[in-house]
Design a protein around this nucleic acid. Structure first.
Length: 320
DNA sequence: ATTACATTTCCTGATT
DNA sequence: CAATCAGGAAATGTAA
C-alpha cells in the first residue's frame, strides 16, 4: 500500500533520474500523479497509469476495449492472454503480440500500447514541470542534459538559448532517457522558451547530428512532400510540374485533404482548410508563391528533403 | 502553469 | 456557377 516515490515512477516510465545532493521527492507530494492505488474504482482507469503498472485484469479491460472498438470477432482468440499482466505485456515485441493476438488485432494492440507508454511519460514530464520546483521547499532547479557535461550551461554549442531557460531545455533531453536534477540559483522563467536566433549559431533543435532522434516530420509540408517523393504510394494524388524547381500540383485536392485529416485524426479536413495552411507557408518561405496556376505550389528555401540529391544521400529534412 | 507553434476553423472578397 | 486563391482573426491541440 506504500505510495511510489519519484524515482520508482521514473523507473516505471523507463526514465532514470540522476540526483546531486537532493532527497527524493516525498511520496505524499506525488498525489497529483495518478497511481495504481488512487484510481482503483474508476472504469477504464488503466488509461491513467503506466502500462507497466497494469495487472492482468487491466490488460483484459484494455483488450476488450479494442475488440469492441474494432468490432473484432473475439471468439477466434485463444485464451492465452488472460494471464498477461502489464510488465509482461510491455516486454512483448510486435511479433510476439501478433502471435498471441493474431495478425489483425496484434499490430493494433502493439501500437496502442506504445501510445499509452508515450502518454504516461508525457504525463510525468508535465507533472514534474509544474511541481518539482514547488515541492522541494522553495528551491529552484535546473534540469541538466547529462551528468557528465559539467559546465554545459556555459556551452553555447549545447545551449542555444539563454541559460535562464536551462531548466526547460534540460527537459527536452528527456527523450535521451536521462535527466539530472540539481540546485539552481535562478528563478525559472515561466512558459515555453521562445525560439532562438536561427541562422549561424547551432541548436539542438536544428542540428540533426546532435538531435539524434528528431521528432518525425508531422508537418503538413512534409506530408505533402512525402506523397510527392513516393510515387508508389501516390495514387495520382499529386504530381511534379517541375521536379528540379520543386513545383508541384494537386491532382485530387480533396483526397489529399482527407488523407491529411486522417493523419491528424480530423475527419472534417477539406482542401479549403488545408490550402489556408499552405498559404501560411509563404511567409515562412517553406513554399513559394506560384500565381495564376490553380492547385500549384512550389517548395521554398526553408523546405528540404524533396530534391533528388537530398533523397539520394539520405539527408533528413529540417523540421521547422 | 504558461507559453510558443502549427495548424484549424471561419469568413469576406477577389479570381479563374 | 463552382472551385480556388488571399489573408485576417480567433480558436485549438500539443509540446516544451
Amino acid at each position: 500500500m506504500s505510495s511510489p516515490c519519484l524515482s520508482s515512477i521514473l523507473t516505471n516510465a523507463n526514465l532514470t533520474m540522476y540526483q546531486t545532493g537532493l532527497p527524493d521527492i516525498p511520496p505524499q507530494q506525488l498525489h497529483a500523479l495518478p497511481t495504481i492505488h488512487t484510481l482503483e474504482n474508476r472504469s477504464h482507469w488503466y488509461k491513467q497509469i503506466s502500462p507497466h503498472q497494469w495487472t492482468a485484469e487491466h490488460v483484459l479491460e484494455w483488450i476488450s476495449d479494442h475488440v469492441e472498438r474494432t468490432k473484432f470477432d473475439a471468439s477466434t482468440l485463444s485464451l492465452d492472454f488472460c494471464s498477461i499482466d502489464g510488465p509482461n505485456l510491455c516486454r512483448m515485441n510486435q511479433e510476439e503480440m501478433t502471435a498471441v493476438f493474431g495478425p489483425q488485432l496484434g499490430p493494433h494492440l502493439y501500437q496502442s500500447l506504445e501510445e499509452y507508454k508515450t502518454k504516461y511519460v508525457q504525463r510525468i514530464k508535465t507533472f514534474l514541470f509544474s511541481n518539482v520546483y514547488d515541492v522541494c521547499s522553495g528551491g529552484t532547479f535546473n534540469f541538466m542534459s547529462s551528468p557528465e557535461s559539467g559546465s554545459s550551461e556555459s556551452d553555447p554549442e549545447f545551449y542555444p538559448v539563454s541559460s535562464e531557460y536551462s531548466g526547460t531545455l534540460g527537459l527536452a533531453f528527456w527523450s535521451y532517457g536521462t535527466v539530472e536534477v540539481r540546485h539552481g540559483k535562478r528563478i525559472r522563467p515561466r512558459g515555453r522558451p521562445p525560439k532562438v536566433n536561427r541562422g549561424h549559431s547551432s541548436s539542438i533543435y536544428d542540428n540533426p547530428k546532435k538531435n539524434k532522434h528528431a521528432p518525425r516530420g508531422t508537418h503538413l509540408w512534409e506530408f505533402i512532400r512525402d506523397i510527392l517523393i513516393h510515387p508508389e504510394k501516390n495514387q495520382g494524388l499529386m504530381k511534379w510540374e517541375d521536379r528540379r524547381e520543386g513545383v508541384f500540383k494537386f491532382l485530387k485536392s480533396e483526397a489529399v485533404a482527407q488523407m491529411w485529416g486522417q493523419k491528424k485524426k480530423n475527419t472534417s479536413m477539406t482542401y479549403e482548410k488545408l490550402s489556408r495552411a499552405m498559404r501560411y507557408y509563404y511567409k515562412r518561405e517553406i513554399l513559394e508563391r506560384v500565381d495564376g496556376r490553380r492547385l500549384v505550389y512550389k517548395f521554398g528555401k526553408n523546405s528540404s528533403g524533396w530534391k533528388t540529391e537530398e533523397i539520394g544521400s539520405g539527408i533528413g529534412g529540417v523540421s521547422l
